[in-house]
Design a protein around this nucleic acid. Sequence first.
DNA 1: AGTCGTGACGTTATTACATTACATAATTCA
DNA 2: TGAATTATGTAATGTAATAACGTCACGACT
Lengths: 134, 134
Amino acid sequence: MHVEPVLTANQQLVFKALGDAEAPLSAYTILERLQGKGIKAPLQVYRALEKLIDFGLVHRLESLNAFVVCDHHGDHTQHPVAFAICDSCGLVAEFVDSSVQEGLSRWTTGHAFRPKRVTVELRGLCETCDGASK
Amino acid sequence: MHVEPVLTANQQLVFKALGDAEAPLSAYTILERLQGKGIKAPLQVYRALEKLIDFGLVHRLESLNAFVVCDHHGDHTQHPVAFAICDSCGLVAEFVDSSVQEGLSRWTTGHAFRPKRVTVELRGLCETCDGASK
DNA sequence: AGTCGTGACGTTATTACATTACATAATTCA
DNA sequence: TGAATTATGTAATGTAATAACGTCACGACT
Ligand SMILES: [Zn+2]
Ligand SMILES: [Zn+2]
Ligand SMILES: [Zn+2]
Ligand SMILES: [Zn+2]
């Protein structure tokens, strides 16, 4: 198991905004959506995001400069994760693949590289959107 | 084999700047280094980079917002590639791993996801820098 | 020669993303 | 309680990327 961290007011706001969204949100989009609810400046959003990411509750999508809530309740317990992102509808699938893990860890150990952060992102079309673009 | 594309003046400048660099460069760093050599505005750099990436001569590192010259002379012939990036010295190792490939392609086919672009980036410490931080 | 399409180029302005700096309040805990 | 730590608020600034123009060079065709 793992404990649920206590979220501050700002963190709750940001977390909820991400949870309510249908697709990844940029920091400034979060800001827009929280204007008037106590959030007024970019830094409030970025600070909340930083913590939420630390807690494992939120992921940053590097190829998008955007953020999504974790699909696994923040319970990764190590395993780096991969994302498939639909460029059409914004759907994000979060997954872990042992073959990918092994490939990467074999390479890193073989080359004495000490990884701190792993980014695996697939950009493309989800089944629905791909089918629709016939 | 594959043909070497003809580069325009701006493209040559940007390509050379990247080739001369010891580490990935951001677009604006490239701009700085090319001031006075005919490059004056961000867009000149971005347009050149776009083409160089199209040609496969340059890669964009998403987790860094920066660019490096391709290690394989742009000869990828499909295979998406992975990067190990040292956060201390900026060293970038470009590699292809079949186990990673297979893991990703198995997932995408299994989920009917059509990938257009793949990002795999490891951020951490290279052997040298990790050893030095004892 | 004249027109046209195409692709690269140049310039300015603007948008989008992220951090620095500094002052202030709240919380924790010895 | 009082020091240390953590969260906040606000403004300004820094960095990355694109929009929106218009121009120029060049080869293809009429
Ligand atoms: Zn997750
Ligand atoms: Zn879709
Ligand atoms: Zn390459
Ligand atoms: Zn290093």
